[in-house]
Amino acid sequence: MSDLAVSPSLLTPNVAAPTARSEAETARMRATAEQFEASFLSQMLKPMFEGISTDGPFGGGEAEGTWRSFMIDAMAKQTVRAGGIGLADTVVSEMIRMQTEQSQTQPGATA
């Protein structure tokens, strides 16, 4: 059973990564990471709504089925605005780390 134990460090995002070069760059990375998290959440929410019937006294009929994907996308974006699931933090941290590694190897690189 101990073979299946997950290290707590694998579940905790590395938020203590190096900082980006500028505020604007950090803001762009954050926006991109949040868009990625919203897209991911949208894909995870879609199966939850697939079996729901749109007929009945309180159903929206065909229109509900047509607009459901937009509603799911809006729910995912709202979830990210409310704090999300932490995926954006991990993505930003990784983007900053990769950017720092790249900038450290480029000035001294000879090829």
Rank of each mutant, 00 (worst) to 15 (best):
R97D: 03
L11Q: 06
W67Q: 03
F70I: 07
G65I: 10
A16C: 03
R21P: 04
P47G: 04
T32N: 08
E94G: 10
T100E: 03
Q102A: 15
G60Q: 13
K46Q: 15
L10T: 10
T12F: 02
A74Q: 13
E62L: 11
L87R: 08
L10F: 08
V15E: 12
A82N: 15
T110N: 07
V91A: 12
M29E: 11
E23D: 12
P57V: 04
S69I: 06
A16I: 10
G86M: 06
A63W: 15
T19A: 13
K46C: 06
R97P: 00
T19Y: 01
Q35G: 13
T19F: 01
P8E: 07
G86I: 05
A82I: 01
K46V: 12
M71C: 06
E50K: 15
T90N: 15
E101N: 04
A24N: 05
S22R: 06
K46R: 10
E101K: 06
D89L: 05
P47I: 11
A76D: 02
V6D: 02
V91R: 08
G51Y: 08
I96A: 12
D89V: 00
K46P: 01
P18I: 07
F49I: 08
D73G: 11
A27G: 03
S7P: 00
P8K: 09
A5N: 04
P57F: 10
S2D: 05
L10P: 03
P57Q: 13
W67P: 00
Q106K: 02
M75C: 03
S93L: 01
G86L: 10
G83M: 04
A76L: 03
A31D: 09
M71Q: 09
G60T: 13
R81Y: 00
L41M: 06
A5Y: 03
G83R: 05
A76P: 05
E23K: 07
G86D: 11
V6P: 01
A88Q: 11
A88N: 06
